[in-house]
Design a protein around this nucleic acid. Structure first.
Length: 784
DNA sequence: GGTTGTCTGTTTTTT
DNA sequence: ACAGACAACC
């Protein structure tokens, strides 16, 4: 045996169990910060180096593209360290940068590139590039390899078109967003339009089924798939074609799934089919040279709105595993040691999540010192909240040299909350970046450019063609377009075929015919040779020759200038994509663009403060975390408050937020918040009341006392200021105050009893019952 | 066929 | 507050 297994010594015993597991099923229940990425990457390395598994037989599914990229990078690094000696005779550290690069590129070629690592969507898109032409849907329709991927906004505008134009329905009653959501849910349950219709008893449901059916017609006409189809189509293809399933089943001998709690039914079906090759999973026994390895944490399941179902994780033992109790099982490993956060932070997290009823029992075991208390601040409004955050960042940054801007993250429930924070950050000259919100690829000008490219690659993509046909304005108006579209649908051919026929255009387009023909000619030129040219070159040429760039230039406004910048930014993105994927085609780029998110551009070690939603923050960690906007109705969100299951999900989201923090955690809420135009009073979040009060401190100054930089203020470690929140100090209480108690719920203060320094209050709870409580001790929160 | 002004809903989270 | 949709007007 070579030096290839010494890296296993970096692991604790549970991690080692997970990593060394070879064949058969294994569920890894991995708490936040317990080193699950390490387990995944080391396992892949171990499969290859120790068990001589061919990298191309390994499939690793991640939740984001960023996670996929990181995993590949980490495996590459691990291999570099392990293989350096056998490649060059020298240990990795002894190599000069040049030699290092050479080793890395060799490793990349032999080990990393053949691996299948990516999101469900990206991997399925890749499978479909091979096999989609063998698929037929329930109406016998088929797609070809140049299919377009319609993103969420494409899908919604398609639904809207159908609702308002084809079916003439009231789009208030059949709001395109909710209809699209219903269709998405149906697809995620694997229901065809017909099956969905049968399950719908009432008018509304049946109408949605009708929209669904027409929606599928449109997708098929455009040779396009939506996000849900990317998973559903492979599943159905595998179900209808044994040979194709057998091929992929044989190929992917070792399957790893990260964030397994966030898989939905279709994704589960896909995994099950690939693992078993179509055999009933309980009957599947042939684990020779085959494994399914899933990693997840039910407490971090925060995507049920996307049909994620964490019971899939909880059922793993029954589906694939031996189903034995925890102490005897050989198909489950729990990673509970947390290497990320200070003990105080973990205790708060554990305490909070225990309030949930549906979970696998699991606690995060601290491995680090308690650290400073969790700071809590009640702000007047969102401005004050933002100023508090900035003030704390400044002070921490000044007092501890080690910390740079990249060590701070501000997390919130909704994207809209970033605004006031940004304003204050700008004013304070603190570098920051916002993750998420409007994606780069969602900008109008970028979508326009991509539409040009998509209609080149996929001539059936009428959606994209319609987007480009009169953008920039070239005198092709609505009437003309309607004529052409109607004629095309009459003949049952894609719009492009109509345009490509000169005589048809002459007769249909009337006085716009010239403009149409000019556009057709432009597109034809590119269609003739796009396969032979580089994607970056085509993009630049078509944006130039279509007059799009000239149009923006001539507008001369700041907005147009900005759009122009974004178009050039897109060119850069394509160039970069080509550098990273040497044999990449235009189709590859388009697929990657449709499936990319803003999160993917987040770089490690950035020298700026990160702002993002809690959802985006999953999987990340920061030394200092601010969790802002902890208000009833905002977080937990008002849509979840009445539904116990959704409320538990919000609590998990809070848990995710808390466990992002390594050293220090700040929790804030405002007493009033501007919602759209109006200012609304706000009540502190029940989650605050659910945290153990002895871990909270509000000793940071409540106002901007810039003249008194007290040592207590930001001197975090060891500060003996473990005080209770200000809401509980005696002078604050009045008869008539409303309170929220962790166990008794909401109530009114009816009496104040005070004797010297000691005081207590009487509370009448709306759920019934009166209690005399010591506000210094009782787990209650004053509602404003 | 294009431009301007008014009205409306909009904010939960995302591959 | 603000963007997108739609109608009225050029």
């Amino acid at each position: 045996m070579t030096q290839t297994i010494d890296f296993l010594s970096h692991l604790n015993s549970s991690q080692r169990l997970a990593v060394e597991h070879f064949c058969g099923p294994l569920l890894v229940v991995a708490g936040a910060g317990s080193g699950k990425t390490r387990a995944l990457t080391y396992r892949i390395a171990n499969l290859i180096l120790q068990h001589r598994v061919d990298p191309e037989n390994i499939l690793a599914v991640t939740f984001t593209n960023k996670a996929a990229r990181e995993m590949k990078e980490r495996i590459e690094k691990l291999f570099a360290q392990q293989l350096s000696v056998s490649f060059t005779g020298k240990p990795w550290e002894a190599l000069n940068p040049d030699e290092q690069t050479r080793v890395r590129s060799r490793i990349y070629k032999t080990y990393i590139k053949p691996l299948w690592v990516g999101t469900f969507h990206a991997l399925c898109a890749k499978i479909l590039r091979f096999d989609i032409n063998k698929y037929k849907d329930e109406k016998g329709r088929s797609w070809n390899q140049n299919f377009s991927i319609f993103d969420e906004s494409d899908a919604q505008s398609l639904v809207k078109q159908i609702v308002t134009q084809q079916l003439n329905l009231d789009d208030k009653k059949f709001n395109h967003k909710s209809v699209r959501y219903a269709i998405s849910n149906a697809k995620n349950q694997g229901l065809s339009p017909q099956e969905f219709e049968r399950s719908q008893p009432n008018y509304r449901g049946r109408t949605i089924a009708q929209v669904y059916s027409l929606y599928q017609d449109k997708l098929a006409e455009n040779n396009a798939l939506d996000f849900d189809d990317l998973i559903l189509v492979p599943v159905q293809l595998f179900q209808q074609n044994e040979q194709i399933l057998a091929y992929w089943h044989r190929k992917f001998c070792h399957i790893l799934v990260d964030e397994y709690q966030d898989t939905n039914r279709t994704q589960y079906d896909l995994i099950r089919l690939l693992v078993t090759g179509g055999v009933e999973s309980s009957a599947f026994k042939d684990w020779q040279n085959r494994s399914i390895f899933v990693v997840g944490d039910a407490d971090q399941s925060i995507y049920s709105f996307r049909m994620a179902d964490f019971t899939i994780l909880m059922d793993f033992q029954g589906d694939f595993g031996d189903g034995l109790p925890d102490d005897d099982t050989r198909t489950m490993v729990k990673l509970e040691e947390n290497y990320r956060s200070r003990e105080n932070i973990l205790q708060a997290a554990n305490h909070l999540i225990e309030k949930n009823t549906e979970r696998i029992d699991k606690v995060l075991k601290p491995t680090r010192d308690p650290g400073s208390p969790i700071y809590y601040y009640q702000a007047e409004d969102e401005q004050d909240e933002a100023e508090f955050v900035v003030q704390q960042i400044r002070q921490l940054q000044r007092n501890t040299e080690a910390e740079n801007w990249g060590d701070f993250a501000i997390l919130y429930r909704t994207n809209a909350q970033s605004r006031p924070l940004e304003e204050i950050l700008v004013r304070s000259n603190i570098p920051y970046h916002v993750v998420g919100g409007l994606k780069f690829y969602d900008r109008k000008e970028v979508k326009d450019a991509l539409a040009y490219l998509r209609s080149l690659v996929n001539p059936a993509d009428t959606m994209s063609l319609l987007r480009t046909i009169n953008t920039p304005r070239r005198g092709i108006g609505k009437a003309t377009i309607d004529n052409l579209v109607n004629a095309a649908s009459e003949l049952g051919v894609p719009l492009w075929e109509m345009l490509a026929d000169e005589t048809s255009v002459q007769t249909l387009a009337g006085r716009s015919a010239k403009a149409v023909l000019k556009f057709t000619q432009l597109m034809s030129q590119f269609k003739d040779n796009w396969r032979d040219r580089k994607a970056s070159e085509i993009a630049q040429a078509i944006m130039e020759e279509s007059g799009y760039i000239q149009d923006l230039k001539s507008q001369g406004t700041d907005e147009a200038e900005n759009r122009l910048q974004n178009v050039f930014e897109l060119f850069n993105a394509i160039l970069q994509f080509e550098e990273e994927n040497l044999d990449a085609t235009l189709e590859d780029f388009l697929a990657s663009a449709s499936l990319s998110s803003d999160l993917d551009n987040l770089q490690e070690g950035q020298e700026s403060v990160s702002l993002m939603t809690l959802h985006s923050a999953k999987g990340l960690e920061f030394p200092v975390v601010f969790l802002v906007g902890l208000e009833q109705g905002l977080f937990p969100n008002f849509r979840s408050i009445d539904d116990p299951a959704s409320l538990e999900e919000e609590r998990r989201l809070c848990y995710v937020g808390i466990t992002r923090a390594q050293e220090q955690l700040f929790l804030t809420h405002a007493r009033s918040r501007r919602l759209w135009a109006t200012r609304e009073p706000a009540v502190s979040s029940q989650f605050l009341a659910e945290l153990p009060t002895d871990l909270l401190s509000n000793s940071v100054p409540s106002k901007r006392f810039t003249t008194v930089p007290s040592a207590e203020t930001a001197k975090a470690p060891g500060a003996k200021t473990r005080k209770r929140p200000s809401a509980n100090t005696p002078q604050n209480w009045q008869v008539g105050d409303r309170v929220l108690h962790t166990t008794f719920g909401v109530g009114n203060v009816t009496h104040i009893f005070s004797s010297g320094t000691k005081m207590s209050i009487a509370v009448e709870f709306s759920g019934g019952g009166r209690k005399i409580l010591d506000p210094a001790i009782a787990p209650l929160q004053r509602l404003t």
